[in-house]
Write a protein that binds this DNA or RNA. Structure first.
Length: 393
DNA sequence: TCTGGGGTCCTAGGACCC
DNA sequence: TCTGGGGTCCTAGGACCC
């Protein structure tokens, strides 16, 4: 088996540098607006020299790199470029899986007659993307997807690294625990406490012992990865999933009117996405983050599917009020649907609260209308009132 | 430093049933 | 009166990733 893991280098920042040639060679930082509560989404390698990293608070990025060029996230543009690049991937193999906007794994088994050796194929792929889009890729090649992923990280940016069959264990040992995908800060600390500091050390521990210390799943996961065995991180086959929208306020909010309005707004966004994918769900979940950053979630499962944004909002608001001390401030509120399933047949046999059935049809009709006339902007009147973070309100 | 937004998967405990 | 074992569904939270 031969797998490629393909990863676009500093993707958002690189797209900006392509679209604006004057930004090339400069420290570009894509993310939240400086001065706000937000983080870095991506940054160019020129910015990394200053110690800027993605997920870093934007305020910290400004401190480290005052001369940085701070740009907003243009997700639509990145998605468009991503789609075009993924088309190139699909011309190399029919068997590929998109992992995220800037990553994919390709099954290149048996493509030698078409593209030559794996290294030759990877070189061709890198050149195609560079010539067409001006963007660089890092490619990892290995016998399984997990090791290929690690190999793509190994020589970033513009990397190409192959872990030869049989060389997985030495390669893992070179990386060390910290660089293994799936081991985060908490697990690393726990392993350090246990004195299990290297992949080689963990290979000496029996599976049962690892599982007693770290749990059944994590134990098995660790047992496999230190041996270069794919734990199955990219297996597809998802039965249900979740949909959510959340927002962090510019300043902490206690005013129930603002909270209510925000929740209604978010409920509509979630429901639009549910309609778009023709899904259904019986479980609503609320997320609240307090000024001290403590985060709580509350959920409720109903005997029937949730039909409309209005219903979703009411359930969410009830949950919120029931669990939240009146008047105390919060920094984030979010709402979502869980256990979303594809709705294969029209809803039937379920008993719904009457009032929401009508709303459901209205919402679906609006969505259809918007699909036909994308310029149309239809919104509930209550959503048209100014919100706390809209300018000039 | 002061921490976004969107996800996935796992764990542990309680309720309930057979 | 003190007590099984297994299964399913649900809730809350944690870890991790992009």
């Amino acid at each position: 088996m031969t797998y490629f893991h393909v990863d676009l280098d500093a993707f958002f920042a690189s797209v900006e540098q392509q679209d604006h040639p004057d930004l090339r060679g400069k420290p570009v930082i894509v993310g939240a607006k400086p001065g706000t509560r937000g983080v870095v989404s991506a940054c160019s390698y020129e910015a990394r020299v200053y110690g800027v990293r993605s997920a870093m608070p934007i305020a910290e990025a400004v401190r480290r790199c005052p001369e940085g060029i701070f740009l907003p996230v243009r997700m639509k543009r990145y998605r468009e470029v991503s789609r075009q690049i993924m088309e190139i991937f699909s011309s190399f193999t029919p068997s590929w899986i998109p992992i995220s906007i800037d990553e994919a794994t390709l099954d290149m088994t048996g493509t030698d007659t078409l593209f030559g050796s794996p290294e030759a194929a990877a070189t061709t792929l890198k050149k195609r993307v560079k010539d067409t889009f001006g963007l660089t890729l890092s490619i990892g090649i290995a016998e399984n997807r997990y090791v290929a992923k690690l190999a793509s990280e190994y020589r970033k940016p513009d990397g190409l690294y192959r872990v030869l069959p049989g060389e997985e264990v030495p390669f893992i040992d070179t990386l060390g625990l910290k660089k293994l995908w799936g081991i985060g800060v908490k697990t690393l600390n726990r392993l350090t406490e246990l004195g299990w500091n290297t992949p080689a050390k963990i290979r000496d521990i029996p599976l049962r012992v690892i599982q007693v210390r770290l749990g059944k799943a994590t134990g098995e996961f660790l047992y496999r990865i230190v041996r270069g065995i794919d734990p199955g991180i990219y297996t597809t086959e998802v039965k249900s999933h979740s949909l959510s929208q959340e927002t962090t306020f510019p300043i902490d909010v206690g005013d129930p009117k603002i909270l209510k309005q925000t929740l209604l707004d978010l409920s509509h966004q979630v429901m639009v996405r549910l309609h778009q994918e023709s899904g259904r769900s019986r479980t609503v979940a609320i997320k609240v983050r307090y000024p001290n950053f403590k985060t709580r979630t509350f959920r409720r499962t109903l005997p029937h599917s949730i039909l409309s944004a209005e219903e979703l909002f009411h359930l969410g608001w009830e949950l919120f009020q029931h669990n939240h001390p009146l008047g105390s401030e919060i920094r984030l509120i979010g709402i979502g649907l869980e256990q979303v399933e594809t709705q294969e047949e029209p809803l039937q046999g379920e008993l719904f609260p009457r009032e929401y059935e009508k709303q459901r049809s209205v919402e679906k009709a609006i969505l259809e209308l918007q699909k036909k006339h994308p310029s149309l902007c239809l919104k509930k009147a209550s959503l048209l009132f100014p919100r706390i973070n809209s300018p000039g309100s």
